[in-house]
Design a protein around this nucleic acid. Structure first.
Lengths: 360, 360
DNA sequence: GTGGTGACTGAATCTTAAT
DNA sequence: GATTAAGATTCAGTCACCA
């Protein structure tokens, strides 16, 4: 079977993976059934019913059956991976420990466990546990010898020039992004947010890499692969999900090539201290900066700190302090008026970097 | 063997646990060895050397040894747990997946996986992975039937009155808290911060509960147990660590009793029958009660039931019936007019409880 | 357009005491 | 042990609707 690039295949992932040639994919993202074991209905304090995951595809007899299923699909997945390929598997405490142990048993080499912290998780309605506010992704190479791809600079740039950590704060997939049927009901109970796949693919794949998703669902991996100009192979067993994923994949448009290429200028650009922009007069001392809504404001000091009343700190620190946030990207948080429009500090940073490049 | 309360035993934890009586502890915190001794060579969690040969069977054999060790100590731990006891196990991606799977296989019931997000993790020096900025704790009950302890109100209070989430941001153990030898070197490679154990014990134990730590190390669990007035049993194999833990335990002072008592939780308050409020005239017979919007109404009877047309029942039952809900908390559902304002029955209940307290 | 209100929702292993 | 009734319990966000 030739490699079915940029297609979504309808059928069982183990059967279909068996038909694909060994060593043919660069990266796998897999969102297998979690084997949730829900024992009854759950109601919110206002008595409304929680729409839990009760689909047949998430039902397994016991742990042994789930383990067998996991070993089978991971074995095929590993066969399809090039020797330097990596795999991502997402899960919750119901299944992720079994998956992690089986990954290790099969010879995969775990690189990180990455925690997706949900900014808006469903609360715990009965007050009997901690709010289950995260899911876990395991990122593993095919073997300890794999010389895998990790776009370190891109991740660092995405994280305001500090190393990307193993815990990612991202919202659930809601609102317009969530695919719905003609009745306005969610098409898939567990659609993943695009932001999550965006970061996964940006971190571990390159342009034209072959990405496989054996549990495509409604195609978030498919859409993000196309947007970021990766090649995609999807497998989905459920005809309704597959149909939705195919339509979504067709509608998706790739970003311009230059925006998805790792930018050497950006990667090698030295970190620009805010103070240096002040020094160079690109942002005058005394400038009044505010957040986007103008709820908080501060004044630029000569040393590159901001002052707001009796508080003083870096653009990041003061932004966090004034909004009671644990952290803040001051570059994008603070705005100031220029030519009658509000622009972020980051705009000036980018302009200054471009000017430096031109000078070299 | 009598229960060695408030002691730290020197020896192998499996051997020593075998000598303790079954069903004798309320909570276990375990920080088992990962055996990650990186001396310029790669070692697996069980300390075996990665030999550079991609031999699946060999790797499985190594993991098997770690699994056997894990199964052995967890089996003994489970025997020591009361039927409603819970266990915490902390680990990293090297070992936590194996531990989680074995916990499930042994019949434990996972309640949460809790992520300890390190506010000051060690950076990734080689830039080949995400900064490993967290560790994972599994919190599990002895069985699915366990009626385990979770101090919901205390956790909510600790978190600015919103539910405590499954991701905790806490700094590493550094500075003065870190135990050091006479050369100023850290005594133990993975000493856990007191804040972590403080939260663990506050969440899942009560005053005078028996806490066991089979891998005591330098005794963070011991110290926090004593500080919070829990009873402690520790086991440590390494004489230097045990000695340090014993000294630390002896130096630790318990907090005042009133400060370690749990935050008052509504579900622990004594139950007041609605009828007794009627008897005491706090809510007069004949009072007209309604829901918040005034859509349904009823009249208070002398026996503490409500009457609405031909229907009659308890405040809960009638509330449920009139709204076609499966259940209803009558205390917060029903309102009545007092001094020109609508107040809930619950307000009266709380007032009467406060009056009783004052009278005592 | 803007702002305020209220309804709705999300991978969830979600109670306990008394009879 | 099974059954029944009491009663404790939610956060961040989106969107529709209306003033």
């Amino acid at each position: 079977m030739e490699l079915p690039l940029d297609q979504i295949l309808l059928g069982d992932c183990i059967d279909l993976m068996r038909m694909l040639p060994a060593g043919s994919v660069d990266c796998i993202f897999a969102d297998p059934p979690y084997n949730l074991q829900l024992r009854g209905e759950l109601r919110r304090p206002d008595d409304s019913l929680v729409d839990g995951v009760d689909d047949d595809w998430d039902k397994f007899g016991d742990y042994a059956e789930y383990d067998r299923f996991t070993r089978d699909w991971l074995t095929e997945a590993r066969r399809l991976m090039r020797k330097d390929a990596t795999i991502w598997v997402i899960g919750s405490y119901h299944n992720i420990f079994r998956i992690g142990a089986i990954l290790q048993d099969l010879g995969f080499w775990i690189l990180n466990d990455v925690v997706w912290r949900k900014s808006n998780p469903m609360p715990n309605f009965r007050g009997r546990r901690f709010t289950n506010a995260h899911e876990t992704m395991i990122w593993a190479a095919r073997s300890p010898q794999s010389r895998y791809r990790f776009n370190y600079a891109a991740m660092k740039a995405l994280n305001d020039d500090v190393q990307m950590r193993s815990d990612w704060l991202l919202p659930l997939c809601t609102g317009n992004e969530r695919l719905r049927n003609q009745h306005g009901l969610k098409l898939h109970p567990t659609q993943k947010p695009e932001s999550l796949l965006h970061r996964v693919l940006l971190a571990s794949t390159g342009v034209d890499d072959v990405v496989l998703d054996p549990f495509t669902g409604t195609g978030t991996t498919a859409a993000m692969s196309k947007r970021l100009r990766r090649r995609f192979i999807g497998i989905e067993r459920h005809p309704d999900y597959a149909e939705a994923a195919i339509g979504r994949f067709q509608r998706e448009r790739p970003l311009p090539m230059d925006s998805v290429m790792p930018s050497p200028a950006k990667r090698d650009a030295p970190r620009v201290p805010f103070g240096s922009l002040v020094e160079r007069g690109l942002i005058p001392v005394g400038t009044r900066v505010t957040d986007k809504q103008g709820r908080v404001s501060a004044i630029v000091s000569p040393d590159g700190t901001l002052v707001s009343g009796s508080r003083r700190g870096s653009i990041h620190k003061l932004g966090a302090e004034l909004t009671n946030a644990p952290s803040c990207n001051g570059w994008t948080f603070w705005h100031f008026e220029r030519d009658g429009a509000l622009v972020t500090l980051d705009v000036v940073r980018v302009e200054s970097a471009a000017a430096q490049d031109a000078a070299e």
